[in-house]
């Protein structure tokens, strides 16, 4: 299978602190990769680096968008990286709180639209068509994610689980080839988690989007992942299939006896 994200020797320093230490990670087409590790292992920092929020201190990040040339993403701005086709959600939900659910998704389509100031003022045929298309596309996405009942709600009034799903819907709207999910199941109850599992699998199978996720809930990780990467202190300490990771003594030690099967 084709590789779509290749991270080589990634280093990130904050002052004297090394948050990421020579990290190598690969994601292949239509794969679900889980990134696990104790708190403070540098998982979210890794997301921030590859999405351009922190410029990495060293190393290589290479993206391979389908049907296009590969791109080095080390020094690109976040919006450029999203344009290439990497989208993410946030650990602590970061919706546009005072906008409606639909508008949140429409924002996601921003970089796939082209109308400018002149279009906005004169509202020519092209702009009108584009706007209608965006509304329709956004509806479709919301339906797919199962949020169609909330379309015109203000985002911050949504129940917690729905907010998490909206984050995913918004990221989907940017038409990514790789979706980064930062603890999508955090704070969800059993039923919500189960629905989320199904949703993630559907996104991969129906939309052909690869997924890289950070997750602490081992049930989610074990049932979804094709491949698991374990981090500790900014380093990759193990990687492999679910079976390999379950039986890896280094991983068990890193979790200090935490029952990873639970």
């Amino acid at each position: 299978m084709k590789t779509i994200l290749k991270v080589k020797n990634l280093i990130m320093n904050f002052g004297g602190l090394r948050a990421l230490d020579h990290l190598d990670i690969q994601v292949r087409e239509e794969e679900i990769v889980a990134l696990i590790g104790p708190n403070g292992a540098g998982k979210t920092t890794f997301f921030n680096c590859i999405t351009g929020i922190f410029p990495p201190t060293g190393g290589e990040i290479i993206l391979f968008p389908p049907k296009k040339k590969s791109k080095r993403a080390n020094r690109l701005k976040p919006n450029k990286i999203t344009e290439i086709g990497l989208a993410r959600t946030f650990q602590n939900i970061r919706l546009f709180q005072n906008m409606t659910v639909l508008e949140n998704v429409m924002i996601g389509r921003h970089c796939r639209m082209s109308s400018g100031i002149v279009g906005a003022i004169f509202r020519g045929k092209a702009t009108v068509k584009e706007e209608e298309q965006v509304v329709e596309d956004s509806f479709k996405i919301l339906k797919k994610i199962g949020l169609s009942e909330y379309v015109n709600e203000i985002a911050m009034n949504l129940p917690y689980g729905a907010q998490r799903r909206l984050e995913i819907a918004r990221a989907m709207a940017t038409e990514p080839f790789l979706l980064l999910l930062d603890e999508p199941a955090a704070g969800m109850n059993i039923q919500e988690t189960k629905d989320l599992n199904e949703l993630i699998l559907r996104i991969r199978d129906e939309e052909k989007i690869s997924i890289l996720l950070i997750e602490h809930d081992m049930r989610v990780v074990m049932s979804l992942s094709d491949h698991i990467v374990v981090m500790d202190y900014g380093k990759k300490i193990a990687e492999g299939t679910t079976e390999e990771i379950k039986n890896n003594p280094v991983v068990i030690k890193a979790y200090l006896g935490e029952d990873i099967d639970a």
Binding site: I53, F90, R94, L95, F96, Q97, I107, H110, C111, R112
Partner: peptide, 12 residues
């Protein structure tokens, strides 16, 4: 609403 999320959604 949120500068970081805004950029992450592809807005310049």
């Amino acid at each position: 609403e949120d500068e970081v999320a805004c950029q992450a959604m592809g807005i310049d």
